[in-house]
Design a binder for these strands. Structure first.
Lengths: 222, 222, 222, 222
DNA sequence: GATGAATGAGAATTCATTCAT
DNA sequence: TATGAATGAATTCTCATTCAT
């Protein structure tokens, strides 16, 4: 989000010719409409006509850009994951303390969610929806990456040797659930949400049950 | 769950006449089939026909019991919530320490989930990822109840004065996410999962940001 | 409608044993319910369940009395026709003047309609329905009979030799249409309606185009 | 109906582009099929499938044009009413004698019926005898208009002060009933039917009971 | 490419009728 | 005989996708 970063998806005009611009613009129109409508009606209840109706385009045009309703949906999910995954990974990679690791993860996530509510809501319905599986390849990869980052951090001695799988799950659960509550409040305070989650995990991580340590290569341990 | 308690849903033959038995049995058949199919295909992809096909009954019979696919789903959710809510509340009500509060909540939840995997999976697994609103009155009431129990515990001095709304969300997020991971493991160890979650919150709760205390009337203010 | 006439359908208790009474009563219950519901919803929109619901009986019981929905409907129509046809015929048979013929027809019809509004309405929907075909055998026979009575009256010299088919149609059209208007008024005045219709035909009949007379047998005419 | 008037419904090719032509044609195809099927099976027994089957179109196409069976039926009724109402009103408006009023009404009606038998039969013939409400706004307005025209004619002194509501009903009843008989004859003779109806009313109107005249303001009363 | 009507497979739903109790 | 749940064929209707313009 630093000023010198320009998202080519958000500003196609800076990267594409005239013709490609119209095409890219139509694609974006459809995606944006789909986000809105999915967020409002949910995937199952949404029809392609609903999406197209939220657009100046005609129904046939939809199929010039996406093969099916499912494909738009995946595109939305992947676009989200595509945008946020590198940022999350980067934050965690440069963390030198547990606190940096944790706070970096939550802060980045909550800021993303706040700045891109339509995507978030399309994925996580905006009223009283509860946890729902998110399993496009991109998203699963994102979870997997978090686990791997946790394992690396444990290996580096940054984290105590806890159950990385459960810890990942706990972080994911808290992140999504808190994000939803955060967005429902009158004032969306990402700092407060991140502070809450960070404190919870900073305090909690050290209390977690410790696994038998994985022996570092070359050492004598099992 | 004491030995002398008999669940009238599980043993309808002890409570109902022949006709009513068939009815209750058919209702259960449909619910059971719905659980399987929802867990397999997800809510969105499931059709009423799919449910009926997984049953020896005729298509029209479905409508003698439920008005729509949504209604069966709600029935499944409510059945779960109806069973687990009182147990959770009771555990928390009798808690005299934070640890009892937290461990009671997670242990009860994970045990329920392990004992009733079909309901849990029917509720959680959704291929189409979206639009499964966990907003039956029962479930919303369950969340609300957790928050109120937290607030009472804070008032009693059991918990530090933290953001009960966020804490509730964190507990719910961790509970659902861990439950899912737990069920995926070869050995379903509810104690381990409960120990993990309890430790996380036991350590974390004391680290959470403390809210400005509400001044008791007559005192000198904040 | 004279006091000494007793309708065996209306007072089955005076004609049948105990067992048959219950049966006859159930039959009447169904017929009465069917009349109401047909009048309210129309035949097409009415379901057997609607009829049965307006009854203390169970759906299966319906089929102990009638083979199908169509059969009840026919029974209602025939019951109407069965009741009124002999009276109309009798009135016309004893008529010695045009006026008696016409006034007898209309007066009898309007009195019947007023006294048995539920049947009439079941046949002729109560709001803004317009002319609709009535073609159960009984009803067609009733129309046919009117035509024959007209032809007899013409043969007797009571009526001028007009087109009996058209005249029958005109009488039927006026009878039904006026009956409907009559029932819609605050005060249902059968005398006024009969007076109106009678006057119309009394004045009109003599003005009608006269057909080439049917040559009486033995005369020289074609 | 002057020679230079071209009905845009009958000759859409002269007014519309290729695409719109197909649309208009399909609409007409459905209406035409509906007319046939309603006339054959009656409204109640007709299903949307029956209508579509009588068409080269696909089942879904029906719903591009009409929301339901009821809507097609209304369209047929309105199409009739829309065509005939202005003609009837015009005839009556320019009438200077009772005879012109009455003969104009019947002649116009019977000519319309003869020229547009499919519409008339679709509206009239109903096997299931019931629940065909002729209550589209157009048709009700047509009846209302006849009554108002009668009232105006009474006010002008053209008619004696009779019950306009009953007179309207009588005219409508005779018109529909005679029309049906007329169409059943080998030779459809609209003049004869009109002559019959006109004679009936010409003779009958003067014999009708006269209402107490409404006293004109300022006069000495009744 | 864009358009939007046509398509038709298939989902949801109804309801007359049957049949075990 | 009465009951009312079960049946499943038939109907209505939706909607993703195709295709002529």
């Amino acid at each position: 989000m630093s000023p010198e970063y320009i998202d080519p998806i958000a500003r196609p005009d800076l990267f594409l010719g005239k013709r490609e611009q119209t095409k890219a613009q139509n694609r974006q129109r459809i995606l944006e409409a789909a986000r809105q409508v999915f967020a409002e009606l949910g995937y199952g209840a949404t029809t392609v006509r609903d999406i197209i109706r939220a657009t100046p385009l005609a129904s046939g045009t939809f199929y010039n850009y996406f093969k099916s309703k499912e494909e738009v949906f995946q595109a939305i999910q992947d676009e989200s994951a595509l945008r946020i995954r590198p940022r999350l990974h980067e934050e965690r990679a440069k963390a030198e303390t547990i606190e940096q690791f944790i706070t970096g993860t939550f802060r980045t996530f909550f800021e993303y969610v706040a700045s891109d509510q339509s995507n978030f809501h399309a994925i996580r319905r905006n009223t009283d929806t509860l946890r729902v599986r998110m399993d496009t390849p991109e998203i699963i990869a994102g979870f997997q990456e978090l686990r791997e980052d946790l394992e690396k951090a444990i290996a580096k001695g940054l984290f105590p040797p806890v159950d990385a799988d459960y810890l990942m799950a706990a972080i994911v659960g808290v992140a999504f659930e808190l994000a939803e509550r955060m967005l429902r409040r009158d004032i969306v305070d990402t700092d407060a949400a991140a502070a809450f989650a960070t404190a919870l995990f900073m305090g909690g991580v050290h209390a977690l049950p410790v696994l038998a340590p994985i022996a570092p290569p070359g050492s004598g341990g099992a």
